[in-house]
Design a binder for these strands. Structure first.
Lengths: 248, 248
DNA sequence: CGTAGTCTTGAACCGCGTCAAGCTTGGTGG
DNA sequence: CCACCAAGCTTGACGCGGTTCAAGACTACG
């Protein structure tokens, strides 16, 4: 899983917060000029190549971070090696647990990743004094909890085919499309193996069900990572998702 | 699922915060006397019988609440009726989403339940002005997120037997025992059906695996709900849980 | 052209779901 | 006190979806 080059990350300096592509969606979204300046004083960028480990479960965390670009996978593992991805962090998502010493799970770069890191202790202190910051973090954490619960439904009750469809729909949603009815193109940010780990399936089942959706015309493949969805409504119908149940 | 008596809850009045059994673990844990008084002004108690619905998915929520006693189940449902429990709230846990209008999932009383409710809008306002409150809520939400992720690992990768063992271990942990090595008694707060919904299994599989653990001497049953664990270490070994993996 | 990494495909197996009875328990009423 | 009933739980037989194991195909990169 980890490449030949051990956990070594390059550090880039600087970059103005004002020009930051995630400025208005990340933890810092609600911050005002002065608060931003305080954050800027304790921030530094780090980059990771696809496959590198960012954090180990149980590690002492000395920073928290916003994902600037790329995809970070959070995973947990059983003693015999079975692995489950428990979160997928995309641009603007937050990595780390303020107020906690140790990481609750592994974090791996699923693609090349750039993080905007904050040293943990100054960040914790800043949280105390900056309601805009802690309020935004609560908001983001609640959203993540909702996402985790939706994923529990998928893992507990959906068929393999529904899981694949749901995954593609989720990526489509987060990459911005999937509102109008028009055809829609997207790129899968994960290998088949990582998809399996996310969906609670084996790599073979992922491959077979992607193939089945392709044969049935729900998706069109364009290389291994590219996917075109000719009819988004059709894709959504494959997800098995809930509609509001009639009351009683 | 719902009993013959529709969603009708009795309202009890009063009860001093100082004497409250969950005073030091709930959202109000860090609050000081004056803050507590403000909370007390907007609070009211509600009781629900086992099986009653507390909230419907998508409902407008006009209150948030702390669980004073009993067990609340959060569930989500697919269009064809498949159900997954996404959270289990025990005494001191928090129900509801400040800052959100609508409930993200059904909430049902799994046992008789007493809630300490706060009207939502005053509570939201209080959150803005009371860092102790929002800070504690962030803490609790992060814990819940961790719990949700642990459950994702269970749902995605554990066998039926491991799921049952993990569930019993979780209940043991939350009911206070499970630290020393001595034998240990606990009561399951859920029916077999609810356990199935929580564990992503059918009721038959739950029944069979509980039976298997009994036959293998891991647990001793005492009626349908009572469980004695003669050797807690043995139970933990059945959970398949992670140990820290050797680093590379 | 060769090799390694990633993905696909096929065949056999098995764990859990499904369906269908029975059993236990507690409550109700004769 | 027992007959009856409904709800919840257990048990068995069977089938299917997804895993496992084992090749093979594709792609990228020397």
């Amino acid at each position: 899983m980890i490449g030949p080059m051990e956990t070594r990350a390059s550090s880039t300096s600087t970059g103005k917060c004002e020009d930051c592509p995630i400025r208005h969606r990340a933890v810092c979204a609600h911050c005002e000029a002065e608060e931003l300046a305080q954050l800027e004083a304790i921030k530094f960028y780090r980059s990771f190549e696809a496959g590198q480990h960012i954090l180990w479960e149980g590690d002492r965390m000395d920073f928290v971070a916003s994902v600037v670009s790329g995809v970070v996978a959070l995973t947990r593992t059983l003693e015999d090696g079975r692995t489950q991805m428990t979160g997928l962090l995309l641009a603007s998502d937050f990595l780390g647990r303020p107020g906690r010493e140790n990481a609750p799970c592994h974090a791996t770069a699923a693609t090349d990743v750039t993080l905007c890191c904050f040293r943990r202790q100054p960040f914790d202190r800043l949280m105390q004094s900056t309601p805009h910051l802690s309020h935004r973090l609560l908001e983001m954490t609640l959203d993540e909890l909702d996402a985790a619960r939706e994923w529990m439904l998928l893992l507990g009750r959906k068929t393999a085919r529904e899981r694949i469809a749901s995954f593609i729909a989720m990526i489509a949603r987060r990459q911005g499309g999937l509102r109008g009815a028009g055809p829609l193109h997207l790129d899968l940010p994960l290998t088949r193996e990582a998809m399996g780990d996310y969906l609670g399936l084996t790599i073979e089942t992922v491959s077979r069900q992607v193939g089945a959706l392709r044969r049935d015309g729900v998706i069109v493949l364009d290389g291994l990572r590219g996917v075109t969805v000719p009819d988004p409504a059709r894709l959504l119908a494959e997800c098995g998702d809930e509609r509001r149940p009639a009351r009683q």
